[in-house]
Simulated scan of single mutants.
Amino acid sequence: MKLNVIISIKPKYVQQILTGKKKYEYRKCIFKKDIDKIYIYSTSPEQKIVGYFKYAGYIKETPEKIWNETKEFSGIDEKSYYEYFSKNSYAYAIKIEQICVFKVPINPKEKLKKFNPPQSYMYLEGDIH
């Protein structure tokens, strides 16, 4: 059985994903296991899982090359992007495809025992919805 992950994303970027303006999610580290779906946890003040997208792979490159390749669908301004990767030699851009938005966002504390919002991501066996 493939695993899924939950990733924490700030609400302003979640909205960019849900409207299709953001087609890449940037990370400093990437999953080590085979992933099927990526659940989107919208951080404070929402604190809900709002949907998921199918994992379609990622790009690993220098921050400059990633920015040049993905900036059109980054959903983030250049200054914030470079601040985020300021101490990193490599950047990861997760491809966002096949988004499924939940009609009613899920409170993860009701579905998962001892849920703590992940700093980057957390593995999840099976589906949450």
Rank of each mutant, 00 (worst) to 15 (best):
Y52V: 13
A91F: 05
L124R: 01
Q98N: 14
P105G: 03
P117N: 13
K95T: 09
L112V: 08
I38D: 10
E78G: 00
F53N: 11
K114T: 06
L3K: 09
A91D: 01
E72N: 11
I96N: 00
A93D: 01
K109F: 15
K54A: 12
Y81F: 07
C29A: 15
Y55S: 12
G75T: 08
P45W: 07
Y41Q: 10
K65H: 10
M1I: 11
V50W: 10
S42H: 04
V101D: 08
Y55L: 13
Y81W: 08
G126I: 04
S80L: 02
D77M: 00
E83F: 02
F73T: 07
V50M: 11
K28M: 03
I99L: 10
I59D: 02
H129Q: 13
W67Y: 05
P63G: 11
S86F: 02
Q47A: 09
G126D: 14
K79C: 14
K109W: 13
T43W: 06
E125I: 10
G75V: 04
T43R: 01
I99C: 07
D127L: 10
Y90C: 05
K60T: 06
K114C: 10
F102H: 03
Y13V: 02
H129F: 13
I30R: 02
P45L: 03
K111L: 15
S74F: 13
I7V: 11
K111C: 14
T43E: 05
R27S: 12
K12T: 13
